[in-house]
Design a protein around this nucleic acid. Sequence first.
RNA 1: GCCGCAUUCGUCUAGAGGCCCAGGACACCGCCCUCUCAAGGCGGAGAUCAUCGGUUCGAAUCCGAUAUGCGGUACCA
Length: 496
Amino acid sequence: MSDIRVRIAPSPTGPLHIGTARTALFNYLYAKRTGGTFILRLEDTDVARSTTAFEQDILGGLDRLGIVWDEGPDAATEEDHGPYGPYRQLRRSERHAAAAADLLARDLAYRCYCTPDELEADRRAQEAAHEAPRYVGRCANLTAAERAGREASGRTGAIRFRVPAEVIRWDDLVRGPIEIDTANLGGDFVIVRSDGTPLYHFAVVVDDADMAISHIIRGEDHISNTPKHILLFRALGRAVPEFGHLPLILNPDRTKMSKRKSQTAISDYVAQGFVKEGIDNYLALLGWSPGGASGDEVLSLEELGRRFDLAHVQRGGAVFDRERLEWLNGQWIRRLDPDDLIGRLTPFLEIAKEDGRIDRIPSPDELRALLPIVQERLPRLDAIVDLAGFLWTERIALDRETLVPKRWDPATTRDGLGAARGEIANVGAVSFEADELEPPLRALAERRGWKAGDLFMAIRVAVTGRTATPPLFDSLVALGRDRVLARLDAAIAALA
RNA sequence: GCCGCAUUCGUCUAGAGGCCCAGGACACCGCCCUCUCAAGGCGGAGAUCAUCGGUUCGAAUCCGAUAUGCGGUACCA
């Protein structure tokens, strides 16, 4: 195992977001590729917005995607595992406090007693003067006596970090050299609130340092924050990690992907029948590519872990394209082995039964027998109900409109269905197989001068209620002789 | 406003000075296969590589400016 340590640090203030999953995946793949360690840390300091339900959604979601972490809270028990715990930011407050005290003691930080009103007034004045908003440094050089005075008057004071004047440079793993002048950081920034709780920028750095994170791979929205983090790592006397900033995932209008404009919760995609292989594959290709002018893009997690590299990470943002996701999803569903597929289909059938879309749930054997004709027709797992639901419900649509094929009229349809019923009835229950059914029905069409396709369509709709179904004769077999005959009778009656 | 990042077919991307009047994939169109729908095969359309200027014998690739978009600018994460 290499010394490379990467992490994902989600904050449980919402369900697992597509962007978080993608960042987690890239970190995971990078760890796989380099033989490093992948850590998960919960950034739960925003107590007001964090919930355990979100926590479970995030942990469970990543786990279901197969993005497993070497250290962090266990997905099932939520117990920490790994030598650098605790892996919940809230439980690391002593470390944050100690780090802040250290900075204070070395005068790298100082207490600031400015009130919100004062700060607000500063900001307005700067705005009026067309200056960039920045902390004016009112409390930067208070004497001990002055400090004692403010404390005595009941003010607790936040802690601000002294920002030195210099240009911060780093060689971004995906973007190359970046430099930012600390003059643009807005002055000495707060690292600990007056209530004693640390701010994000401070807590991440302390935690990342403590957890010996070597490579920070995160979203592009953190580029501007990176100088603050580098300053803090240095002030704390810790090694500055490498940074790599990933492009953002975008809404169709090219703004940062948001719940408002796109479906962002991984759990929603899972509920719609997207499989983990499809999601992982798609997410990996959002911003990264295997390189080369052509080549297979259907890649398993294992393969991705073997091939992933930061050099091929795209710099521009990527619009989320659901159609491509669906295509990849279909590719993966086709590749699943039968028993696996059956297991994954079952929850969707259970839901359909609860909804009343089907009356019963097929047995595993029944499903297995069906797979040869349905597996390649499923863009998503939930599509099984639309595709084959006619097998498990007796309530099928019987409206005259769809019952009558395009080139036929109602009378011909009745006639055709009646004749077909006769042929089908002739096929005994024991030999009720596709090979036995097709020849007589084709012969019938030929005798009567009908296009076989028209006859078949009439039967299809009569028996399934739909115009798009798995192959007809296999469908008839799956339905069984008695139900086929009964449905044909019902359709004939409906056309009367 | 200031700072930063980005910009190749509708979308995801290949491309690291000549192999590119730009390749692949999704979507789209057509054909083949075919009982429908898919899947699969074949083919097509689709990008003056944001714009302008420079460097060079030669630029999508290097440099600069401009434009546009996005991100950041909190005692939010």
